[in-house]
């Protein structure tokens, strides 16, 4: 296999990983601060993608579309938090799973009602079309490279937000002891809404960015949601750093497994069987990775609490 192809696949894995991180960061923040498991996070991803497609269709501007995606998802998230999620913090995980599953039904069918069942189209901006030549003569799509850049920039910004700002201090304090910071005069329910909207905005951004290379349709959020769960379970629930490491691990495993496992089996099996077995195993690879991590460390790589 030529090294250029391998490098390209590694970049693809990285791109997939950083987009997963945008989803996983919100999920893990929400779980860390509020102790809530939110299945409807994938719906916010979908809301972002639809908002972006609608705005890009009306104005033709990709930048406006991204802003719209983040705003729409953050607003939808804040609304969701204030109407439903707020009542679930004191409940057990079972109630949270069911209520947020119900939210998925409402959001998915509601979107189908508004936009119809046909996928919408969101185009890559003209400035980011076409390939770019990397050192070593590797041709790689400019847009995917931009995704990696945006993802890593957001990851860095989020790190700064958590460690350097007043909001970040409050978020970390909220993770440690919510009664104490409430007693110190922090408006805890507003903090929760802000954290939820922040996570939702990140999910919406991811939806819009990925929507431009896949199709924008109802149900697009759920496969990504489940991968994001795998990511935060591997990384350790509540840890942003864990989410980043987990996301890149999952992105690389999924992408490289799909390429290398069939090749690997071809070494000692006939081509048809090898392709079949390789594809089957590759589709399960990240779940096998997760099971392996959990058997070694039941609270994930960077997780402190169960």
């Amino acid at each position: 296999m030529p090294p250029a192809l391998i490098a390209e696949q590694i970049l693809n894995g990285l791109q997939f990983g950083v987009m997963l991180f945008l989803m996983a960061a919100g999920l893990t923040l929400i779980f860390g601060v509020m102790g809530l498991i939110n299945l409807a996070h994938g719906s916010l991803y979908m809301v972002g993608a639809f908002a972006a497609a609608a705005v890009a269709g009306a104005t033709g501007s990709f930048l406006l579309a991204l802003i719209a995606a983040m705003t729409a998802a953050a607003l939808a998230g804040a609304l969701m938090e204030m109407v439903v999620i707020r009542r679930l913090y004191a409940r057990d995980h079972l109630d949270q799973v069911l209520a947020t599953f119900a939210l998925i039904l409402v959001f998915s069918e509601g979107t189908r009602w508004l936009f119809g069942s046909f996928p919408l189209h969101l185009d890559i901006p003209a400035a980011l079309k076409g390939p770019v030549t990397l050192p070593g003569g590797i041709e790689y799509p400019r847009y995917r490279l931009a995704l990696i850049g945006i993802g890593l920039t957001v990851a860095g910004g989020l790190g700064l937000l958590i460690t350097r700002t007043r909001l970040g201090i409050r978020i970390r304090a909220g993770e440690n002891d919510r009664e104490m910071i409430a007693a110190l005069g922090v408006d805890i329910s507003r903090l929760y809404t802000i954290v939820f909207a922040l996570g939702a905005g990140l999910a919406g951004l991811a939806g819009a960015l990925v929507g431009a290379i896949q199709s924008v349709q109802v149900g697009m959020g759920e496969p990504v949601l489940i991968l994001a769960f795998v990511v935060i379970v591997i990384g350790g629930i509540g840890s942003i750093r864990g989410a980043l490491v987990g996301a890149i691990l999952v992105g690389l495993t999924d992408t490289l497994g799909g390429i290398f496992l069939p090749e690997f089996f071809r070494l000692f099996l006939d081509p048809a069987t090898a392709a079949n077995l390789g594809a089957s195993l590759a589709s399960m690879a990240i779940y096998i990775l997760m099971a392996a991590v959990l058997i070694r460390r039941p609270t994930g790589l960077f997780g402190a609490r169960a």
Partner: peptide
């Protein structure tokens, strides 16, 4: 081997597998 929210997610992941 896991409990709580990890149990929910690992059973979900096995189902997906």
């Amino acid at each position: 081997r896991t409990t709580g929210v990890y149990f929910i997610m690992i059973t979900l992941a096995f189902g997906q597998m």
